[in-house]
Design a protein around this nucleic acid. Sequence first.
DNA 1: ATGTATTGGTTCATTATTCAAACCATTGGT
DNA 2: ACCAATGGTTTGAATAATGAACCAATACAT
Lengths: 264, 264
Amino acid sequence: MSTIAKAMELLDFFSLDRPEIGLSDFHRLARRDKATTFRHLSALESAGLLEQNPATRAYRIGPAVLRLAHMREVTLPRRAGLRVALPRLAEATGETAHASLLDASGLTTLAHHEAPQHSARVVLHESRLPLHATASGIAALAFGDEDLMKRARAAMPAFTDTTARSPEDLQAAVARARASGVAISNQTFETGVTGFAAPLFDSTGVAGAVAVAAVSSRVTPELQTTILTELIKAARTISANWGGTIPPALAAAWADAAAPETAP
Amino acid sequence: MSTIAKAMELLDFFSLDRPEIGLSDFHRLARRDKATTFRHLSALESAGLLEQNPATRAYRIGPAVLRLAHMREVTLPRRAGLRVALPRLAEATGETAHASLLDASGLTTLAHHEAPQHSARVVLHESRLPLHATASGIAALAFGDEDLMKRARAAMPAFTDTTARSPEDLQAAVARARASGVAISNQTFETGVTGFAAPLFDSTGVAGAVAVAAVSSRVTPELQTTILTELIKAARTISANWGGTIPPALAAAWADAAAPETAP
DNA sequence: ATGTATTGGTTCATTATTCAAACCATTGGT
DNA sequence: ACCAATGGTTTGAATAATGAACCAATACAT
């Protein structure tokens, strides 16, 4: 493992629950030498990727990250590509719609939109989505490479009693998603929430997923049909906006899924 | 210079004008060995900080940056702290207001707001602001540490014929800003634009600057007074939102600046 | 077509960094 | 005063980074 990779790995320990991390915590979390950890943190800090809270001396994400993110969003818009499709998806289905982005360490929620129709809507609070336990994760895995699958298998905590717990269960769910072009997860991440997701593509391949999180008790066969139809429509639009191409196998699966609706 | 610092330095070569950079270009820009450069780029890529354009093989900012930026903005809001103050500043002065953030490599525009009153308003197009040639830069330098000043002196290109060209000129401008609490730059970056700026603070110290970019021909003594009063008001609000404390010397300078207005 | 320059990417002795286990100074709690 | 944390520094043995040359593929001119 390269020095740079080790330093970059430190960034992955941050989360919304743990936005500041001290030297000793890093040393334990990364299971790496304290002196080295300190040097890495210092290097990242002087580059502006990290900064130290002067009160606690703990490290947190630095301002340089905002500069880089701004640049990426201007030259390669992602949020802009969701602006129309996501609200429309929420509106058409009456449920919460969200889109997430795939990077080296998993899925992160990029944007979400709640439908105004129902009072009991699903509120998203977690910004990192586990690959093995969410519809979005399964959808991404179904069209991602083997490396992504390896990462998913590496950590498979159970969130509910229907969360896939064995690699075989996961493989089966992924195979279903690959065949149908969409992933459906019944309360695998949170009880009372059924997730529907489709993969998103940019010019590099799988780039994320778009999903509908519905209140399970409200999901009828009719609603499910609506959701899947609208989901595929949204996925097509967003992938087009992101400059991605839909793999032929997926295009075929989506055509089949839409057929029952459009057939005379 | 550490390996990590070298790798991080590569990120600084990106800009809005140059959002994608190939291996050979990096090798020349960074004046570093090609093999080393390649390894650094590969490491950054596998961490998600960079990604390769599959068509050109050139590197660009990767998706992990968005994840990190999102986390920082949620736990340590910066844009949110501007939401009220910046439009109010633009409204009250009738000119374009913008705020910029300081990081290891300079100032970056974070947000800007245009006043609707005039048709001939100043449109900002550059997101990186040179420290030596903008009011924002001078304001930041006036209350930043010696290290920041060193960086400013390192590169001082002339943008107009009133741009400070010698370190002495720069030092004089900074001294004026330190004494008055605001920086005024008359067409030092772009002809026809006069800049007014005040420093912004967060808990770590100087964190950026808030500025008004006015059409030079429109600047009367009355407008200038209005701008300075409103600018100081906005700077106080934003720094408070960012959890910063105004250094006593600056607080005194601002009190003096406001005095001519409030005196009976 | 052939030579030439340029691209992204790879190999292998030399050189610099990282490792581990100490240590120091400060802080907060008992 | 003590103990257990914290952030930060130092030491020779292990491990990784480095740079010059090298390779294969593409682009471009003669």
